[in-house]
């Protein structure tokens, strides 16, 4: 879902960069001493996830992992995703440096939305509800990203509805797989390290 260099117009790029700057500064403020390694681990997970193609159906897309990033990090997923995207742009030539701001917002904002919607639910006592929330979180984060990409492309020549439809349809397999991955992550964390889910939420 990386937008390439040279597609977007200058106002969109500037708006994206400004929004990303706000998100990153809020996120950095929320990082405390113990949280730094969490941010780094999830940032590298995001960095590598884009290399994992989902070879199902005629469309081939890759994992994003912004749902789990958001629900575990809250606002701190902004700096995590910014760093990962910058490295993807430099090392893999995915996306690009000028579109870094826009790409950060399209990936990290859904993470933050998911954090507010689902963090409390994921951190529930009831296992079933928590896992359903985790699945919804992974699913919805990718969906929101698709919509945000379509919005940022709105100002180029492409029509919003057709782009949104295409992106979202292409990402249906990813949404489901991300949902399942988020579900397993949460299930695993609940069993092994429940304070990771709760602790962050308490401080976030």
């Amino acid at each position: 879902m990386h937008i390439s260099e040279g597609v977007l117009s200058a106002p969109v790029l500037v708006t994206g960069a400004a929004l990303a700057a706000v998100g990153v500064s809020v996120g950095l403020k929320k990082i405390d001493y113990e949280k730094i390694p969490h941010v780094a681990v999830l940032s590298s997970a995001f960095f590598v996830a884009s290399l994992i193609h989902v070879p199902v159906g005629p469309s081939s897309v890759h994992l994003i992992l912004n749902g789990i990033n958001g629900v575990l990090l809250g606002w701190s997923c902004f700096p995590a995703i910014l760093v990962a995207l910058a490295l993807q742009a430099i090392l893999f030539q995915f996306g690009g440096i000028t579109v870094l701001g826009v790409n950060t917002v399209t990936m990290a904002l859904p993470g933050v939305i998911c954090y507010y919607l689902f963090a409390r639910l994921v951190n529930q006592q009831k296992g079933g509800l928590s896992l359903v929330a985790a699945f919804a979180c992974g699913f919805l984060a990718v969906l929101c990203s698709g919509i945000l990409v379509a919005i940022s492309l709105l100002f180029t020549e492409e029509s919003f509805m057709s782009v949104a439809k295409l992106i979202i349809l292409a990402h249906v397999p990813v949404m489901i797989i991300e949902g399942i991955i988020t579900l397993f992550c949460v299930a695993f964390l609940r069993r092994v390290k429940p304070e990771l889910l709760g602790g962050i939420y308490g401080k976030g």
Partner: peptide, 24 residues
């Protein structure tokens, strides 16, 4: 829950027929 999700996933995957799309 798991088998149902996988079933749902495979149905959706088979039914979607759209243009190729990757990150670059």
């Amino acid at each position: 829950i798991y088998p149902i999700i996988f079933l749902l996933a495979s149905i959706l995957v088979i039914s979607t027929n759209i243009a190729a799309f990757a990150h670059k």
